[in-house]
Design a protein around this nucleic acid. Structure first.
Length: 546
RNA sequence: UGCCCGAUAGCUCAAUUGGCAGAGCGCCUGACUCUGGAUCAGGAGGUUCCAGGUUCGAGCCCUGGUCGGGCAACCA
């Protein structure tokens, strides 16, 4: 293995370890269970779990479930499944909601220290009092309520005496602070809502800023790694830890992953699902891990990809082609080869005995040592790709043309004798002859051909469905658009082909297996398949230098 | 006219306490009697935004500019 240089977060960890600040490290992956994990999360997962693996330590899986309105148990289960699929195991499965009692006590502590107060203002009033980045905010009368009154009101908030939105608990910091987030941030709000884990126990819920850092601290997380948008929150994060006098977890920020032609917003992805632009969160076109898995992307490809893109603080827009490169690189090594004809053109080998079938061995994967061979049936009637024949070929065309010769992969060299057309002039069949001495592995014909094409025996071919995917969006930078993102959907993101014929070995395909259909790309079996109909998803095409 | 962050090959991104600047895509060349629009191997391509400074040595540190992005949800 080549030495991979460290990223800036690894530098921080190494420095901390060297300085004796910690002997082991603890990280956490903190998804909010309000959607499925996507490729951007994979970067965070690889970073957090990778750090603990590399330097010795643990990673907790902690669900950031402080907003009961948007969060569901279904998401929890799928997130766990996706993290495991990526190849990581967490030390503990935890929930911010596990800490609701403790968080409530933390809030009380701030009230008792005179560092929090109950505010009756409306959100509009609060926004107006907040000022702007260059104009300081103003104090309102509620800010000077007594500790006793604040304590009484907050208890009553918890007891459900006030309706949603009527009161909030705010940290009392500084309404003129240069950092807007420290202008008395809301830390608790009233929501009479059913929580996916705590049910109806609570009607006050902590805000992110009053839950995340405290949860980190309770779990003694040493390095709390999040994305750049939380940089301004770090000051608040530290303020609460200091005032609460709890374990000093530290927050570090990296640039989130953006990918070309891809959307990472869970809100928008949910919209695509709800409004049926896709078949579900696991639609193979979705950037979700479950979608990518269904499409045939491998966990290893994702880990390699995350390794390649690195971790830095610069805003980025990673080429989708880099991910595809990682997928091909892996699949090329593990996918067994099969022959499948997508747009069949019938050919008849006129000098091959009618009704005869012979089994020809074909290697499953020349890139893998022990992939072995399989037997492919050959007969006098075959299907080849319509594209592999040209009536009037250009100069450097190495495939079939009238009078031309081509090698049938793992079989014989054939020569096209005649193209038969229908009344409209469409080619419907090719009459060919084969060279018996040219059999693969036993070729004594002395004939050299440049082209090699795939084929299937018409008598043994299996009709399958193939789903070809293209990028979901046509716009490279989906973060830069101003209009409705749905205007940028690629109308050709899914193409279903039904007139597709596969060699019989494909009948035994299993879910989770990867195949390379020779010259066509990588494919895998889709769960929509039935006993009578096999459906394959195109994971990715072969590298195409057209 | 406040605070925070960034600027590296044509494009998109990496670069281990300061030590010969790397990858993918794109481009070019070569190999290959069995994927020839595939696969493999190699190549070209950089004043690391600008100007100063510290240092034996700076993409990394300091100062000042320029340009770009972010910062006011009872979301996370």
């Amino acid at each position: 293995m080549e030495e991979k240089s460290t990223n800036f977060i690894e530098d921080i960890v190494e420095t901390d370890l060297k300085a004796g600040k910690h002997t082991i490290i603890a990280t956490r992956f903190p998804p909010e269970p309000n959607g499925y994990l996507h490729i951007g999360h994979a970067k965070s997962i690889c970073l957090n779990f990778g750090l603990a693996l590399k330097y010795g330590g643990k990673t907790n899986l902690r669900f950031d479930d402080t907003n009961p309105v948007t969060e569901e148990t279904e998401y929890v289960e799928n997130i766990k499944n996706d993290v495991r699929w990526l190849g990581f195991e967490w030390a503990e499965e935890l929930y911010a909601s596990d800490y609701f009692s403790q968080l409530y006590e933390f809030a009380m502590k701030l009230i008792n220290k005179g560092l929090a107060y109950v505010d009756d203002s409306t959100s509009e009033e609060m926004a107006a009092q907040k000022g702007t980045p260059t104009v300081p905010g103003t104090n309102n009368p509620y800010r000077s309520r007594s500790i006793e009154e604040n304590r009484k009101l907050f208890i009553e908030m918890k007891e459900g005496k006030y309706p949603d939105g009527s009161k909030v608990l705010r940290a009392k910091i500084d309404m003129g602070h240069v950092n807007m987030l420290l202008r008395d941030p809301v830390i608790y709000r009233i929501k009479h809502a059913h929580h996916h884990r705590t049910g109806d126990t609570w009607c006050v819920y902590p805000m992110y800023d009053f839950a995340h850092g405290q949860s980190d601290s309770i779990e003694k997380i040493t390095h709390s790694i999040c994305t750049l948008e939380f940089v301004p929150h770090r000051e608040l994060y530290d303020w609460f830890i200091e005032k609460l006098e709890i374990f000093p977890s530290k927050q570090y920020e990296f640039a989130r992953l953006n990918m070309s032609y891809t959307l990472m917003s869970k809100r928008k992805l949910l919209q695509l699902v709800n409004e049926k632009y896709v078949s579900g969160w696991d639609d193979p076109r979705m950037p979700t891990l479950s979608g990518a898995r269904r499409r045939g992307y491998t966990a290893k490809a994702f880990r390699d990809f995350c390794d390649k893109i690195g971790v830095a603080k610069r805003d980025n827009l990673i080429d989708l082609s880099l991910l595809e490169f990682c997928v091909r690189e892996h699949l090329n090594k593990i996918a067994e080869r099969r022959m499948v004809v997508f747009d069949p053109l019938k050919i008849v080998i006129t000098n091959y005995p009618e009704g005869k079938t012979e089994m020809l061995p074909s290697e499953n994967n020349t890139e893998a040592e022990n992939a072995g061979v399989r037997e492919v049936p050959f007969g006098c009637e075959l299907f080849i790709e319509r594209d592999d024949f040209m009536e009037n070929p250009p100069k450097k065309y190495f495939r079939l043309s009238p009078g031309g010769m081509v090698r049938l992969k793992s079989a014989f060299i054939i020569k096209c004798e005649e193209a038969i057309k229908d009344a409209n002039g469409n080619i419907v069949e090719l009459r060919c002859t084969y060279i018996p001495e040219s059999r693969s592995g036993h070729d004594t014909s002395g004939v050299h051909v440049k082209g090699v094409i795939h084929w299937v025996s018409a008598a043994h071919a299996v009709n399958i469905e193939v789903r070809q995917y293209e990028r979901l969006f046509n716009t490279e930078d989906m973060n830069a658009i101003e209009d409705d993102f749905k205007n940028h959907l690629n109308p050709h993101s899914l193409a279903v082909l039904n007139n597709v014929y596969a060699e019989p070995a494909l009948i035994n395909a299993k879910f989770g297996e990867h195949f390379q259909f020779l010259r066509m790309g990588y494919f895998c079996l889709d769960p929509d398949s039935s006993d009578t109909k096999l459906i394959f998803n195109r994971t990715v095409t072969l590298r195409d230098s057209k």
